[in-house]
Amino acid sequence: MNQKQIHRFLQQYLEATNCHIIEKSPAHFTVKLSPEADRVLTNRPYYWSFVDRTGAEPETMSFLLVTDKAKYDSLAEGNDEKSGAARLQASPQTAASQIAGQMNNQVNQALARSYGIVPTQVLAMNRIPRDDVHFGSKRLKQLFEAARGQGSYVYLFQEPDTRSRNPFESTPYTPWLGINIKVEFQCDRKREELYSFGISMATGHYVESFQQQLNALKMTPRLPANVHIAPAGISLKKAVQTIESALERKLRAQNYQWAEEAGKRLEEEQEIVRHYYDKLLSYVEEDKRETIQAQYDSRKAEIDWQFRPRVTASVINCGIFHLAGIG
């Protein structure tokens, strides 16, 4: 994911959660969160339970989210210089205020002696915390998590193309079950693949790369006018079974050399341990036998845990999509 993609991801998330974008550039957003986003992103459960119980007007937090650090910093520096120059020009008139400033300085010095340094400028500002959002940053991870949590199950209708529609004619729509699946191939190492299936609930016909197809369409949560929906021909259970077996067929056809290699490693490691402990157990004193046997068993289990090849599939998200046409 490059900076541009991250920037777009952020913008989409903020807009989808109704956050108020105060200021933006290609390198940053200054944003006041919506209550919805604040609950997910700021980790303030006590505050929100207080708001919920008392019905107080919530005060959400603001953030400066920087998506392109180098660019943002160079822009910010430029601004500083400009205002610095302005300050220089204004200096003749401010002699009086300088004297006041010196007085102030002495006060600060006195305070600083007892308390350490007094951060006068910083305290005066209402600070907006800054986050540099790059791939791997905590903030982006949190946004990913938030999107996953808030985008799991949908129920949507394709928006009809308004221009070409005859107001007296009803368009047939077909309900589809769409599922995005993550498949993990795992031994002591790991690889992942993403699959997307769509299956027509009317006919039981299924397609792959369904999400790509959906991405090109406009969707709405409301049933559009002049639309009739084809009745379901298959049950949800049947639809899921169809997709599961389709996925399984695809996975079966893959190359499993990695698993064979992992199996070999597993066998070798077990052999080493077996050789070691068998010998040890053959001459160990009786009172220690139990401990050694327990060590042996736990080591065997560890090796199995570490190397055994396995594949797991889990659903990222899913939904019912009503698409124009009969499919």
Binding site: M1, Q5, F9, Q12, Y13, E15, A16, T17, F135, L143, F144, A147, R148, Q150, G151, S152, Y153, V154, Y155, L156, N180, K182, F185, R189, K190, R191, E192, E193, L194, S196, Q211, N215, M219, P221, W258, I316, N317, G319
Partner: peptide
């Protein structure tokens, strides 16, 4: 029901973090 944009972003997040290779 969840939001369509967030649904798409969830997929995008998974795509961004997917581990494409063992090595």
């Amino acid at each position: 029901w969840d939001d369509w944009t967030l649904y798409k972003l969830a997929v995008e997040a998974h795509e961004a973090e997917a581990i494409s290779s063992f090595d």
